[in-house]
């Protein structure tokens, strides 16, 4: 074992040692904390606050999973990743899950050997331009210089969109959102493109957000969700059903404030099963029976998480739109807890 550890550490691509693959849950429990990959900083989704504590919409998913496993939402090590390092970090076992506004695509799910466990934000790619530029549609951007994060689906969509509309552009590749923001504000590029939610979050941090508009075109589908390594389905189930629990909790009206009260027992059997008052759902995924209750108590339900971090009352000000519950005309739909 010693020898294999030595060799593993020396392996060229930084592949991690040993059989970390099989039982991620055991590894996480033995370590006593969850390693969760997030962005290097996108306000509202994942960014350290003034005290250095990570906070945000994606961070909430990480904390919910940690709370479901340990009953402690702070048992998370946040690992900041860029568009280029995120997949290697997950594949090598450096992180247990990735919650970093990552788009669910066919090749990432199959060829890159990952499993997307759901969607926590339905998004699409947009463009932000200075109002002074006088551009009202992305199709007017012929010949423009556009800042773009490398290693993202937006990089590929951009090539597709401009080709489909038979117009040209100059790409300025950048590594992180912060770099993109700086380049864009310095005028090194005419437009900055990323997921519309990311644009809203970035614009919220500008000195004069009113001087910039997000163009109406949404040029792609970007279902963003947490993902895990392919091959450990038990671990994938835990992340998937923690996310579903947050979504279902909103549907049933379970919030962080009333969850303890409801956990005492209600006349809705679905809520009772979700919160572990009835049935043995927790044991089926190798967790305690109050796993979902802990997750909801720690971060709130999906709606609370949304409103607190990126909702209309925050500087980012995103409407629920597609991310409303199915009962309200959105796409959020958790399978039943049964």
């Amino acid at each position: 074992m010693k020898k294999s550890v030595l060799f593993g550490a020396l392996t060229l691509a930084g592949l991690a040692a040993g059989a970390a693959q099989a039982a991620t849950l055991d590894d996480v429990k033995a370590r006593g904390s969850l390693n969760c990959g997030v962005t290097t900083g996108l306000v509202g989704f994942a960014a350290p606050d003034a005290n250095g504590v990570w906070d945000g919409f994606d961070v909430g998913v990480c904390r919910a999973v940690a709370a479901a496993i340990f009953g402690d939402a702070s048992a998370v090590n946040f690992v900041p990743t860029t568009g280029q390092t995120r997949f290697t970090a997950l594949a090598s076992g450096e992180i247990d899950m990735l919650a970093r506004n990552t788009t669910w695509t066919f090749s990432r799910d199959t060829d890159l050997k990952f499993d997307f466990v759901g969607v926590n934000y339905y998004d699409g790619q947009g463009f932000i331009v200075p109002t002074a530029l006088g551009v009202s549609s992305a199709k007017e951007l012929d010949g423009a210089t556009i800042c773009i994060q490398t290693g993202t689906t937006t990089e590929l969509n951009l090539a597709d969109f401009f080709r489909a509309n038979n117009i040209s552009y100059v790409a300025v590749p950048i590594e992180t959102n912060a770099e993109g923001q700086q380049q864009y504000l310095a005028g090194a590029c005419d437009a900055y493109t990323t997921d519309a939610s990311g644009l809203a979050a970035t614009r919220a941090t500008f000195e004069n957000p009113g001087d910039h508009i997000i163009l109406p075109e949404i040029v792609s589908k970007e279902p963003l969700g947490p993902l895990v390594r392919h091959g450990d389905n038990e671990w994938g189930d835990i992340v998937m059903w923690t996310l579903n629990a947050l979504i279902a909790a909103e549907e049933y009206g379970v919030t962080s404030t009333n969850v303890n009260e409801l956990a005492a027992g209600t006349d809705n059997p679905e809520i009772n099963r979700l919160l572990g008052t009835e049935g043995e759902l927790g044991a089926m995924i190798g967790l305690s029976n109050d796993w979902a209750k802990n997750a909801i108590a720690a971060v709130g339900n999906y709606g609370e998480l949304f409103e607190k971090n990126i909702g209309e009352n925050t500087p980012i000000g995103l409407a629920r739109g597609l991310n409303a519950q199915w009962t309200n005309g959105g796409l959020l739909y958790s399978p039943p807890f049964r």
Partner: peptide, 18 residues
């Protein structure tokens, strides 16, 4: 940036690319 960055990221072929 091309072979060692975006290509590796898109194809997941870290070892080969490096």
């Amino acid at each position: 940036a091309t072979l060692g960055g975006t290509t590796i990221n898109l194809t997941g072929k870290e070892l080969e690319g490096m």
